[in-house]
Design a protein around this nucleic acid. Structure first.
Length: 270
DNA sequence: CTAAAATCCTGGTGGC
DNA sequence: TGCCACCAGGATTTTA
């Protein structure tokens, strides 16, 4: 559920306290989340300094002093915090990255979906991702070219990280509403004007969510307050703020999908 | 080729 | 109060 706005908010909040710090230990209580041999991580990470903390899609990327990268994916329930080693870690902290300043970077992950990678080169993972929706290089023209080279339904495409990076279930639904497009529309049925609206909608929604420091649901990642500004997500059977029609919920690509049947007509029908 | 379904996980919820 | 089936969902893997 942490999507681009939540991951970026996490990055911004952690950056100050982590840049320049040096790792001194790694403690793992759920080894399956570590996609590098745990012994290698524990042998190699201590002594390395954090040079930069970046985000690509939903990944956080630590650039280390030996040129290696530590990649973290929060998946469903992951949360990162920096705490003093003296504070007893929460039950659901699965990995603790000890720092030489007496603190720890703690990876709390109730549902155990989160992933940790320690790699010489981040490209094999980050290179597969589609464009960054808020990047300056992501222009309306670039988006149109992207869509014209892709087949499939709108919402599943938005969730496909190789198509476009960083969008998850919440922001896919909110972006479709903002664009006035039915989430099951086929990309090839969208007009150029539909695509321009969609481009603008994606940027508007992600920017707005970022300004609210993301979404807080189920106390999983108490980051921001965008949940107070949902138009459709989680609003099944509540009335549309724009036209008062009840919001519908369907399953698309195996994911619950919320939309207004009046404000978001199917592309073919208009 | 695309697309749907199963998989991994836990905590919370609703039914009885 | 307890038990249990069921749901949420990101990305990968399997099946159709």
């Amino acid at each position: 559920m942490p999507e681009l706005p939540e991951v970026e908010t996490t990055r911004r909040r952690l950056e100050q306290s982590l840049i320049g710090q040096t790792f001194d230990s790694v403690t793992v209580t759920w080894p399956r989340s570590i996609r590098t041999p745990v012994s290698e991580l524990q042998r190699e990470l201590p002594g390395l300094r954090i040079e930069a903390l970046d985000r690509r899609g939903k990944y956080l990327s630590f650039r280390l002093s030996n040129g290696y990268f530590l990649l973290l994916h929060l998946k469903m329930s992951g949360r990162l915090m920096v705490e003093s080693k003296a504070i007893k870690p929460h039950l659901h902290v699965r990995t603790r990255f000890g720092l030489s300043n007496g603190h720890e970077l703690r990876f709390k992950d109730t549902r155990k979906f989160g992933r940790v990678y320690f790699l010489k080169d981040a490209k094999p993972i980050l290179g597969k991702l589609g464009p960054e929706p808020l990047d300056d290089h992501f222009t309306p023209d670039a988006f149109q070219r992207l869509c014209r080279g892709h087949k499939g339904r709108l919402k599943p495409s938005l969730l496909n990280q190789e198509f476009i990076a960083g969008i998850g279930n919440i922001y896919a639904d909110e972006s479709c509403f903002e664009a006035g497009l039915h989430p099951a529309s086929r990309l090839e049925d969208l007009s150029n004007s539909d695509l321009r609206r969609l481009y603008k909608a994606i940027r508007t929604i992600l920017t707005k969510a970022l300004n609210y420091e993301g979404t807080t649901l189920d106390e999983v990642y108490p980051e921001g307050e965008f949940q107070n500004h949902f138009q459709v997500y989680g609003r099944r059977e509540q009335t549309c703020f724009r036209c008062q029609t009840p919001i519908q919920r369907i399953i698309l690509a195996g994911r619950s999908t919320h939309f207004c049947p009046v404000c978001q007509p199917c592309a073919k029908e208009h």
